[in-house]
Design a protein around this nucleic acid. Structure first.
Length: 669
DNA sequence: TGCGCCGGCGCC
DNA sequence: AAAGGGCGCCGGCGCA
């Protein structure tokens, strides 16, 4: 087996251009002094041979980037790249570092300070950090320096390497050397780390990383007219809001927010005892809270209005410029393939459901958006985890029988029969619907360790259910307030409501007795505030240093991610290299945890139908493999649309043929 | 002016 | 005894 490190230097990344033209390459083997600079032709020759050689492994830092560059340089290499990834011959020191750190319970943490690592242009483990950690060398350079050769290789394109300044020629060689040295250091460290530092999972993560990078390169377009309309509406609302609250001094003349003034107003509204935020290093006794819930509960008309005043600030600052850029270049979302639970993170995973931001994203001409998401994925992975750990799961039984687990838990709360309650839910009887809604909060939250106080807070914050009214204890509701901790922050809630919530907790555990046992185990593993390791099933990735809630949460969240990544890889492979697949020529654009969004090539309606069904079938199949005991309950249906929207639904004609969803026509005024 | 921290909030 | 988790991004503030 031969191991080479491989790195490319390219023209600059630009908006819409994430795989810019190649300029040169560099390689190294383990042999000291073996590092070499390759001109463009040599880099092509080297890569073409190495990627096809089944005994050769390539190591890179953010290798997915270099793979994208080489694939764009010569599309004939796409097939061999997919094959090499399938064979597990491609490695990335950043993915490896994440896997090792997850095993140690130190993901994204600087061990010397205990603080979170800062992202470097989206990379949590930039090469400079790894070189510092493993080789003790400082190769950080001035980021602002526009003369750095790192940023100027475009200038050297087509200049013979013999005439390059020595600095420009040395830099790639140094990176290739360092990358391979880091790789071998990681090999040694992994051997000493529990579960081998999780490195057995590297190949899976590399495949996911490449599929995601291809999605980044492809990107998404937005509709110019829709963006213009959006901007007009958002900016009008924003201006109106500013004007409304400027008088009270919450906003200054220049439009910026006066947070100190707002805090003072909140303090006054709460008669000097305002809700406070979680204690931190800087503020050991917390700060005055100014979140929406605090404002809405302040009893002050203006503050309540501010709490209700919508989210246009966020829309304007976070999304408006981005989606506008999408009218001229593809928007390139950035993905981090591996966070501590094995999930993916991205800067483009939290597009608001409301507010019209999604809707400006339009499929390219001759493509159609296809979204497929798993229904109730984490309930299924939670049930699978229970079966593996305990040998049984009532939730799995219910799901496999096709029962509605929210109605089932609600029936337990009410002491009603499932059939009876289901009929009432279907008839939209308010009490039945409300209790089902309540059960949903518990089903999704309690498996992760949520307690009664948080339940009350969540139910209230989302303005859904009043516990005391449901429990016919309105007489005591709100009389006494108590502090509970919700996501590490203190919150005031009604004591009587918390009592009701505790009764529901017990009934919920009666509905799903496996959860009582899982909680018990998590408690004993963390007795006295201790930490424990937990295995993420499916990929057998060990996550170290977990507290109570992480022990409960990580396995089912991670298992879902493992299945989604596997599905994503297979879908992408057919899209890029399998000419016999109806998916060939289509492109993945986004992964949002339990959902894959693509642009399907739409030559004709039959082909479109086949592609969408194929994608959903691959997704169901992949997830069944990682949740074998829930196989009958895995659900994933395709929905087609011209633009993104939370309203998009599966639409079929009478013969079952998939149709492109269209919004309901507005009734004439 | 830049940077780190914090609060707040968007999504699953 | 107590406890959903996971993220990323933005603006404000305070300090250098």
């Amino acid at each position: 087996m031969t191991v080479w490190s491989f790195d490319t230097e390219t023209w600059l990344i630009q908006p819409g251009l994430l795989a810019p033209p190649l300029v040169c390459g560099s390689v190294a083997t383990r042999e000291p002094g073996s590092e070499r600079l390759l001109d463009k032709a040599q880099a092509r020759d080297f890569f073409r041979a190495a990627i096809a050689e089944c005994d050769t492994h390539l190591v890179g830092a953010n290798l997915a980037y270099d793979l994208g560059v080489m694939a764009a340089d010569d599309p004939r290499l796409v097939g061999p790249i997919f094959a090499a990834l399938d064979a597990g011959r491609l490695h990335c020191v950043q993915v490896r570092e994440a896997l090792i750190d997850i095993a140690r319970g130190m993901y994204g943490v600087d061990p010397s300070t205990g603080r979170k690592l800062d992202d470097d242009e989206g990379a949590r483990y930039p090469l400079a950090l790894l070189v510092q950690r493993h080789l003790g060398l400082d190769i950080t350079e001035d980021k602002k320096n526009p003369k750095a050769w790192r940023l100027r290789y475009g200038e050297l394109d087509c200049v013979p390497v013999e005439r390059w300044p020595s600095e420009a020629a040395e830099y790639p060689k140094r990176d290739a050397r360092n990358t391979l040295d880091v790789f071998y250091q990681q090999e040694a460290i992994a051997r000493e780390t529990p579960n081998g530092g999780n490195l057995h999972a590297e190949a899976d993560q590399m495949r996911a990383a490449f599929a995601l990078h291809l999605a980044s390169i492809w990107g998404m377009r937005t509709n110019g007219a829709a963006v213009a309309q959006l901007r007009q509406r958002v900016e009008r609302e924003w201006t109106e809001n500013r004007a409304k609250f400027q008088k009270a001094g919450i906003y200054r003349e220049d439009g910026t927010k006066d947070s100190k003034r707002l805090a003072a107003l909140v303090t006054a509204a709460y008669s000097g005892e305002p809700p406070i935020t979680a204690p931190s290093d800087k503020f050991p006794s917390g700060q005055v809270a100014t979140d929406r819930d605090t404002l809405l509960g302040s009893g002050d008309a203006l503050l309540e209005e501010l709490g209700k005043s919508g989210r246009v600030d966020k829309y304007k600052s976070t999304y408006l410029d981005v989606v506008e850029a999408g009218t001229t270049h593809p928007i390139n979302p950035r993905f981090n393939v591996l966070v501590s639970t094995t999930r993916v993170s991205s800067d483009y995973q939290q597009l608001p459901q409301k507010g019209g931001i999604r809707e400006v994203h339009e499929a390219r001409p001759s493509f159609v958006f296809c979204s497929v998401d798993y229904g109730g994925l984490e309930l299924r992975t939670m049930a699978q985890r229970a079966i593996w750990e305990l040998g049984f799961s009532k939730m799995a039984d219910a799901l496999n029988s096709g029962l509605d687990v929210h109605t089932l838990a609600a029936a337990e709360f009410l002491g009603a029969s499932y059939g009876e309650l289901l009929a009432k839910v279907k008839a939209k009887e308010p009490v039945a619907v409300a209790f089902r809604q309540l059960a949903k909060i518990l089903n999704f939250g309690k498996g992760g360790g949520m307690t009664g106080g948080s339940l009350v807070y969540n139910a209230r914050a989302k303005d859904r259910v009043s516990f005391c009214l449901l429990a016919k204890r309105a007489d005591v509701c709100g009389v006494e307030r108590v502090v509970v901790t919700v996501q590490r922050k203190p919150k005031m809630v009604c004591r009587a409501c918390v009592e009701v919530a505790k009764e529901l907790d017990t009934k919920w555990l009666n509905a799903w007795p496996e959860q009582r046992e899982l909680q018990h185990r998590a408690k004993s593993l963390t007795y006295g505030g201790g930490f424990s390791d937990v295995m993420i099933p499916g990929a057998n990735i060990l996550r170290g240093g977990c507290g109570y809630t992480q022990i409960l949460n990580t396995p089912f969240q991670g298992l879902g991610a493992v299945g989604c990544k596997r599905a994503m890889w297979r879908v992408s492979r057919e899209m890029y290299v399998d000419r016999s697949s109806p998916l060939y020529g289509s492109r993945l654009v986004l992964m949002v945890h339990d959902e894959l969004i693509s642009e399907l090539r739409a030559q004709d309606s039959q082909r479109l139908h086949d592609a969408a069904e194929r994608k959903a079938e691959i997704m169901r199949q992949a997830m069944r493999e990682v949740t074998p005991d829930l196989a009958p309950a895995i659900e994933a249906e395709p929905a087609l649309s011209r633009y993104l929207s939370k309203d998009v639904a599966t639409v079929r004609d009478s013969s079952g043929r998939l149709l492109v969803w269209e919004p309901a026509k507005k009734r004439a005024a």
